[in-house]
Structures are given as structure tokens and as C-alpha cells.
Design a binder for these strands. Structure first.
Lengths: 343, 343
DNA sequence: CTGAAAGCGCTAACAG
DNA sequence: CTGTTAGCGCTTTCAG
């Protein structure tokens, strides 16, 4: 099938080592020799077999990024950033999705592609701490996202509680009093609560505003449809919110769709704030105010962590939890507060 | 570092062949033997080295999908469909992006990852026929998308001209007379025109409506911002359109944003039709009427083609051009025509 | 049904 | 500066 080093060596009348030297751009090859070998390479159309090289070197130069789903533009945008960051270290990224299933998260975290990938960046949804503690010899791992783990792995995430508080604080400053939270997870979760929900609660309590369950809507997933249903449920429940803080932008967008259908105006009747700052958020008929995590920083920190582990050949002595930046992108769905309030 | 087959064999007191048989679930292994080997595997935490297996078998079970960018949800959604289709054939997908650069498209098409991937599904933007004719021994390739090539490769694409005609025909049936096209490419293109632009022109001419350049806006890219700028340019130009057919949904969404800012109503003043049916199109304040390509079919046909080539060990004798289905998803931005017209 | 040994294509000692 | 050779870990004839 393929043309091998040996074929080239034979053709050029040299040893495989010399060809290897040329292919890898090593020093100490006379120009004449190099030219002769290069010619043989061109004539035969030789292409190095990376698989063999990988086997020999014990590494592949490929890292994997596993996200819940591409359907959420946040992860699509993040994937782009990770690919760029990895390219700067000469790594290729294999992008994978777990469909948000714990089973798949477990599989991928335990080295499903052992020896094909050098390391893994995983954004889990359902994975638990105990799923991670049993992990052995499956290569370097970096975690992403809102979940917290008591496991010895680097974890990259913005300060979700603080970001949520800023978002809710912004709504409070607008004079809103009944601020709902859309997108809590269903009860099976062992986690006490989402960090974003916690931030919502803290900020409301600090402001002396109601933060009870009647203002929280649980959703099945994290998509637009979930947001639309959640908003409908909130209204049907008679909660009469004057603002909504959504777990993410997709839920916020779904909620705005329902508000429009019910004849409620944004931000007039209900102000809306999302989370993620996906590009879509800027282009709705009413642009979305949202928490904007620094995706480039997240990607860079994740890749840097992985690359460092790969170089050291060992996990970090102490797990690191860097905090990439974020800011509130203020747009039309919850505009800047004017002196004297918004209404 | 790792535990190898040999280590397991030693531990279990058998030969490597036997361990290999167990690992690969071969027949003809006595249950007792199998149990003993399995125990050794578990004790040592053995995980097969896929790289070595790949080298030996000459294939990796990985296929690559290269799309212009993840930022466009169409490709993100398509990627998900390809991953699912590939999984049904026990293939893993390495998702890559070309950033829409011809240089990258060329690189990837010529076997950048030779021997790491078994085959490639490529969605090109800038690649030319001559870039493909020089391609040798870089593994099976399947092309996706609107561009047409005179090269011996399978190409999967819906009937873009017919789909565009349906979209424009729908606008005509609504009684619209000045129907613009947003998203033509800049002049460098050697292609005479986009298929979608051609469909727009054909349908308008058939209806006896104007189809001149004053109704066509060229864009730099295919994003929301490009659509917003294009719409602004069209209006500033004094074209006074009563409908817009956009190259894709992102451009349509950007255009609707501009229309809203200018105080024009959709579909009252201007009806809008997009192309791709990304989920986002269903959730705007005004949902988008759009051409909906059957993404599952596209993905399935592409993967099937690749898998067939992989099995035969040869490219198809004659290149195939299957036509996955499509339909017009009629929503609020260009609703169904009512008897007697829409206005 | 199981064992021994060859070799996939490449790189890295080690010689020359 | 270049050639020889031994594996990386696995699968696979070919014997037993």
C-alpha cells in the first residue's frame, strides 16, 4: 500500500536513518545528501506514517476535548478556542461529545481512547467526584465547567457564584423585585445546588428580596426549548416575575420567545439576563444581556495545563483552580440602570 | 510505563496470543482460560495500546470531518449528525476546522493526518477542482456542500438550485415583487455563481420579476454581522425590497436585526427566508422561514460513502452525487400564503 | 485450542 | 556525517 522509509532509502541508495534525518529536519545532513533524499521522497510520494511514529515515541500529539453537545453554541465557540490554543503548542484536537450522558463522560474520562490521545479536556455535567477518584493511568486530565470536584485534577472555571451575583445585582439595580431563576437541575443531583443558583440566592438575600422556590424553575436540559417551557411554567404558576436570570443563553433565548408569544415586552415587563455570551445573544430582535466568560482564557488555561502535565510526565503536585475572567455584557434585554431606576 | 500484552501473559502464565484472543473476544478460548486471563488483565489494569493495533492493522477507525467553522451552528449540528452516523459503523470522528481558508482546506485534503485517519469528509469553501485533481494516496475523501467539482470524489449535497427556487417561489406566492439576495461571494471566485444565487435568479425570471444586481448584496463572510451589514447596505442603496432571501440562516438573522433597528417589520414590510434550518432559526422573536436540508441524510450518506470506500479499499468507480432531501420550513418571517395574497 | 515468532513503519542508541 | 540494529505493542500466520 503505502511507501515506507525503507522504500525511499532504497531508491536514494542511503540508509533509513538518513531518510529519517531528512524527514525530521535533523542537523548534520550534507545538502547534497538532503537533496538526493528529498528527490526520492518526491518521486515516490512518500508520506510518513504517523501511527508508527506515535507508537515509537509513545505520544501522538493529539489531545481530546469532550463537551456535552455541539448543539449549544457555547461549546462550539469554546471548541474553536481550544483548537487555536492547542495549535500554538503543535497539538491537534480531537473533538468529542458526550451527549451529556454520565455513561459517556465516565467512558471518556477513563481513557476510552488511551494511547490515541495524549490528554483530555473534559466538560462534565453528570460526572461525580467518585467517578474520578478511581481513575488510573488514563493520561492527563483537565476539567472544565461549573461542577465542583474533590479530585486531584486541574479545573478551569470562572467564578460562577460571583458572576451570577453580578448578573442578579444588575437586575436589582434596575429596580426589579421579583427575579426568577430558570434552569435549575432536577432532583437526582447530589450537588447541593448549582453555583449559579447559589449566586442568585445570595444576591437576592443580600438585597432583601424574595428568593424562594416559587421563583425557581427546574428544567430537563439546557436548550432553547427548555427555556421556553420553563418560562411558560413560571408564568402559568402566577409567579409574576419582573426579571429572569437564566442558567445559560439558550434558556434565556427560549424564555424570551415565550415572553413574546405571551405579549410581554423585554425588558419593559420582564428583564432577562443569560450566561455564556454566545454570538447569537447579540443578534436577537432584543439583544441579550449576559455573563460573558473569557472563552479564550479558559481554552488557553486548559491547554496550558495539559501541555505542562504532558511535559512533566506527571499530574500537577497540587491541583490548580485558576479563575479565568468574566464580565457582564449589558445589552437591550436588561439595559444599564439610569439614575433613578429603569421604570 | 504502560502495561503490555506481554505483562498480562506473564502474569496469567499464558502466551500473548491467548491474551490477545481474550481481549478481542475471539472464539475458541476455553472459559477457564478466559477467566484466568481476564483476572490478570483486571489486576494489572491493562488497557490495549490502540496505536500499536492501528499500526499493525493499517487502519485506525478514525475518520475526520473538516468544516469551515464551528461558529456556524449548521456545521455544529452537522458534526453531531456525522458523529452519530459514524458511531453506527464503529468509527470515531475527529472534528477539524479549516477556518474557511483555502490553505487549510488544501492541507487537510492532501492528507495532513495521513495514517492517523482512515478517511475524510470535507466541506470546502475555497477549494478548486484543480486542488483536488493532484491529490494522490491520501485516503478516501467525500465532499460536502454547495461547491461543484469536476473531480472523482463522491459529493453529497442537496439540490441547492431547486431549494433556492422553492424559497423564492414561496416569497413570490406571498405577493412579494422586489426580492433581494443577501450573501453572494466576492469577485475572486472563479465559480460563475452560487447555486443558490442561480436558483434565485431563475425563479425570479420565471415569475417575470426583477433579478438585477441592485438586489444582490455581496458579503465578506457568512455570519450574522455580515447579514446585518448587507441588509443595511441594501436599504441605504434605496433598493426598497419587500422580501429577502439569504444565503444562510445567520445572514438572515443578521438582516432581521438590522430591519428591527430600522423600524421595519418582518414579515409586514419585509419577508425573510434563510437557508440551513439551524435551531436558532426557530427561536427568534420572529421565527425564520428557511430551507431545511436533511442533515441526518447528509451525514449518513457521507459516512456510508466513506465506509464503503474503506471496505472496498478503493474509491468508487464512478463518483456519486446523491441528493439528500430538503423542504421549506415555513414560519413567521415568511408565513404561508393565504388565498388572495398576504398583504 | 494455544504457543512461538515475524513484522507493521518508525526512531534512537550505538557503531563506524 | 551515515549505517546497523533493536524494539515500541500488537496481530497474525503457522505450527503444535
Amino acid at each position: 500500500m503505502g511507501v515506507s522509509l525503507k522504500d525511499v532509502a532504497q531508491r536514494a541508495g542511503v540508509s533509513v536513518k538518513t531518510v529519517s534525518n531528512v524527514v525530521n529536519n535533523y542537523q548534520h545532513v550534507t545538502p547534497g545528501m538532503r537533496a538526493r533524499v528529498q528527490q526520492a521522497i518526491d518521486e515516490l510520494g512518500y508520506r510518513p506514517n504517523l501511527t508508527a511514529r506515535h507508537l515509537r515515541k509513545g505520544r501522538t500529539g493529539i489531545i481530546a476535548l469532550a463537551v456535552p453537545e455541539f448543539g449549544n453554541p457555547y461549546f462550539a465557540e469554546l471548541a474553536g478556542a481550544v483548537i487555536d490554543a492547542a495549535a500554538r503548542h503543535d497539538y491537534t484536537v480531537l473533538v468529542d461529545h458526550t451527549a451529556g450522558l454520565r455513561e459517556n463522560e465516565l467512558l471518556v474520562s477513563q481513557g476510552f481512547r488511551a494511547h490515541v490521545i495524549d490528554g483530555l479536556i473534559l466538560s462534565p455535567i453528570h460526572l461525580e467526584t467518585e467517578d474520578l477518584t478511581g481513575r488510573t493511568g488514563a493520561g492527563p486530565l483537565v476539567l472544565l465547567g461549573e461542577r465542583e470536584y474533590e479530585a486531584p485534577y486541574d479545573h478551569i472555571a470562572i467564578d460562577n457564584v460571583a458572576a451570577a451575583r453580578e448578573a442578579v445585582g444588575h437586575l436589582v439595580a434596575l429596580g426589579r423585585r421579583r427575579i426568577a431563576f430558570l434552569g435549575s437541575r432536577t432532583g437526582r443531583e447530589r450537588q447541593p445546588a448549582h453555583l449559579r443558583l447559589r449566586g442568585w440566592r445570595q444576591e437576592l438575600e443580600a438585597a432583601g428580596l424574595p428568593a424562594d422556590d416559587s421563583l425557581v424553575v427546574v428544567t430537563d436540559g439546557y436548550g432553547r426549548a427548555d427555556g421556553a417551557h420553563a418560562m411558560a411554567e413560571l408564568l402559568d404558576r402566577g409567579a409574576a416575575p419582573d426579571a429572569v436570570f437564566a442558567y445559560n443563553d439558550l434558556i434565556a433565548i427560549g424564555a424570551m420567545r415565550t415572553l413574546a408569544e405571551r405579549g410581554l415586552s423585554v425588558p419593559g415587563d420582564v428583564a432577562v439576563v443569560g450566561f455564556d455570551d454566545i454570538e447569537e445573544a447579540r443578534y436577537g430582535t432584543v439583544s441579550l444581556t449576559t455573563v460573558s466568560p473569557d472563552k479564550e482564557a479558559i481554552a488557553r488555561l486548559a491547554v496550558d495545563s495539559l501541555v505542562a502535565q504532558l511535559k512533566d510526565g506527571a499530574p500537577p503536585s497540587a491541583p490548580r483552580r485558576p479563575r479565568p475572567g468574566h464580565h457582564l455584557a449589558v445589552r437591550e434585554s436588561a439595559p444599564a440602570a439610569r439614575p433613578g431606576g429603569d421604570r
